[in-house]
Design a protein around this nucleic acid. Sequence first.
DNA 1: CGCTGGATTGACACCATTCAATGCCCGTGG
DNA 2: CCACGGGCATTGAATGGTGTCAATCCAGCG
Lengths: 243, 243
Amino acid sequence: MSVSSSPYTALLRKIESHIALTTDERQAIQNLPVHVRAAKAGETLLREGDRPSQCCLVLSGLVCRQKIVGEGRRQIMSFDINGDVTDLQSLHLDVMDHDVAMLQDGKVGFLPHAALRAMTERHPRIAAALWRATLIDATIFRQWMVNIGRKSAYARTAHLICELVALARSVGLNEYVIEHRPTQEELGNALGLSIVHVNRTMRALREAGLVASEGRRLVVLDWEVLQSAGEFDPAYLHLKTAV
Amino acid sequence: MSVSSSPYTALLRKIESHIALTTDERQAIQNLPVHVRAAKAGETLLREGDRPSQCCLVLSGLVCRQKIVGEGRRQIMSFDINGDVTDLQSLHLDVMDHDVAMLQDGKVGFLPHAALRAMTERHPRIAAALWRATLIDATIFRQWMVNIGRKSAYARTAHLICELVALARSVGLNEYVIEHRPTQEELGNALGLSIVHVNRTMRALREAGLVASEGRRLVVLDWEVLQSAGEFDPAYLHLKTAV
DNA sequence: CGCTGGATTGACACCATTCAATGCCCGTGG
DNA sequence: CCACGGGCATTGAATGGTGTCAATCCAGCG
């Protein structure tokens, strides 16, 4: 439950969820320079068009990747939590195609591209693990496309809740709970729904006895039924541990 | 225009669109074992849950990645053409999270994972180029999420047409034309729309003078207006050449 | 205590789906 | 040469899921 004080703990756990590391490799990661700072909700860390020279590691709080489109509309493409590197892609793609923004206060660490590149060249297994992490990102994007394109508001909301719970559990939480859920507006911007309809849908989920709301805590009451309502199968997350 | 006879030509062009290759590296790619075969429209090359031991390179025809969801509904997540490796991800993710299917007759080449892995270990620059290719895949998935989640049927159809034209042009076609377009049903399954509404939307695009249809050929009549209708900015494709 | 961000609700409009037919092109077989 | 069938495109009508607009409510907080 407690968030680790060292930025390396989060990063190591993330990478070790992909491969087992040798002592040498662990050391290489812990030798990475990292600049940690606090960031407040609403802050935009990276903007579409930027050419970052470092990668952004989430240490606490809630971060999202999003695109702004037209008149204030936006699409959120991922929620990133403790241990996620939000823009690993910037290591190989110079220009950002989307924003990275803080949704809730937290801490982020910045890892210089130069140091990361040097490490990946000397440690191809770590490079492969990072590559794998970006591939899992892509599987999640694909899943979201399916949800947004082909499922009802009810099903896709249920699916997103399942995903957030599964990911939170995979980094250490034990309960079927989302401790600091996104706002309904943020959920809408992730699900391709209006805020009003997210509200209606959440109410339906509550009335069906699948979830309960306690302020910013969202509690899953019936994990099995919620999964089937969202047609959720965690295989696409490629987690080592069962959900 | 003419499709190359050698499977290596397509693959080399693809990789060389990311990095300049040394003679040594070119040779390594041309030494890859590849098994070419014809595949007919409707054939499913890979299925969700499969554990492939080779990657699939498109040589001709039209291929898609898709997920089946619930009662016969499906979401197409990409259209793949000459030179695309549809499942590069399977090099690092053992289980397929989606299907790969032929939409139009063509040829595909299969590259064994073992040979690819051996090559990437000895040629880290090629590994980086392939990694980059998967990252661009992800940028396209993100863009599709925005389209499906936040744009009108008209705008997202226009956007998809722009993307298909831009990609076809990037691999050698000169005109603003899609030679073998997907069917309207396939477009619908990619856009998150019903076939009927795709039809109405295509009519609207025709009546607005943006495109014209000649059987399976789709001709863009007004590239500028089509782009603005779809809010299309090719930056996310990370093409070296301008559209 | 008033302010602010978020949640909630109702009424209404509309975009897109569904259902159902029809049309068109083209390859195949009699 | 024509009839037939299949796949795809097209169109109309009715339905409905979701968006929009507009209030109101609520809790936390300075």
